[in-house]
Amino acid sequence: MASLGPIGVFDSGIGGLTVFRSIVEQLPGYDYIYLGDNGRAPYGNRSFNTIHQYTWECVQWMFKQGCPLVILACNTASAKALRTIQQQDLPLHHPDKRVLGVIRPTAEVIGNYTQSKNIGILGTRGTVQSGSYQLEIEHFYPDLNVYQQACPLWVPLIENGEYNKPGADHYVKQYLGELMAQANGIDTILLACTHYPLLYDKIKAHLPANVNVVAQGDIVAESLVDYLKRHPEMEQRLAKGGHRKFYTTIDDTADFDHHASQFFGETVTSQSVDVNEGC
């Protein structure tokens, strides 16, 4: 019988820890590996090919650590790399492994949050340009109107620890204004980047009180719970010791640990890795 392995959770940086935190809250008994590709972050402005290359390298590294299942807790990677990984890479190289993303689970439920049927999407330039959310939401809710706004400066602000400082308010107000100007009656805004929950309070402060702001952590976690119930053959391959390991592709783990602890909600101690070592 094959040895049991951890669930892998991947992000281009530290934003995916907001999703990882929700997953651990709902599925605390499993083993996990978190990998942040901070050395090459942010992914948002990179090409499809580059994002696929980087994401696939990180996924393969997690497979080598024994993960039979990897969650792309990154909207940009989910938008620009997941389909190719699922349809081409896995069947050819790892047919027994699975990789899941964050876009489809969110699209499946986002219609439950709106009454006006006008939804705003805030994301990286890569996520917005891919059109992935518009396509997925239309599949589940063809009657919804979806408006998108790229926020290219938000991830750098967050990654550099500036998200809770007064200077961030200018850029929050700017991008929200550009989104809300696209249509009257937007009553639901999706934070389509796992970094953005750290700006949640500032975002709410610059919006009318009746506008819902939806983060993805709990949605993705609930979807994973459902996935494991529907796929017992995968659930039985997962280690259940409650262990968590954190990895980053930058040398300065102290800096990563400091910011990651804020995102994850508890102390994080990581190791630096080269995902291409041995390739």
Rank of each mutant, 00 (worst) to 15 (best):
Q53G: 11
I33F: 03
S3W: 08
Q60P: 07
P42Q: 14
D31N: 09
V9C: 13
E25R: 13
W56A: 07
L4M: 09
I14S: 05
R46Q: 12
N49S: 14
Y54F: 05
G8P: 04
G39H: 07
S12C: 15
F10I: 12
F48H: 11
L27H: 04
Y43M: 11
F48M: 08
P28D: 10
G39Q: 04
E25L: 07
G16D: 05
G29A: 08
I7P: 00
F20L: 05
A41T: 08
T50D: 12
K64C: 10
W56E: 09
G36W: 01
V24K: 01
A41D: 01
Q53W: 08
I7H: 03
G29H: 08
G16N: 11
Y30R: 06
L27C: 07
P6I: 13
Q60H: 12
L35V: 04
P28C: 10
T18E: 02
G36D: 06
M62L: 14
P6S: 12
G13F: 01
Q53I: 13
R40H: 12
I33H: 02
N38D: 07
N49E: 15
I14L: 11
M62R: 01
A41W: 05
R46F: 11
G29P: 03
F20D: 01
I7C: 05
P6Q: 09
E25M: 09
S22Y: 05
T18Q: 03
S12Q: 10
F63N: 04
G29S: 09
G8L: 14
I23H: 02
T50R: 11
P6L: 12
T55Q: 12
I7F: 06
I7W: 05
Q26T: 05
S22F: 08
P42L: 15
G15N: 06
V19T: 05
V24Q: 01
G16I: 05
Y43T: 05
P6N: 08
Y32R: 09
C58W: 00
M62F: 01
P6F: 11
W56I: 06
V24H: 00
G29K: 05
A2G: 04
L17V: 03
W56R: 09
G29F: 04
D11S: 13
Q60T: 15
D31V: 09
W56M: 10
I51Q: 04
I51F: 02
P42M: 15
Y54Q: 01
D31C: 07
G16F: 02
F48N: 12
L17F: 01
F63Y: 08
N49C: 07
W56Q: 08
D37S: 07
W61V: 10
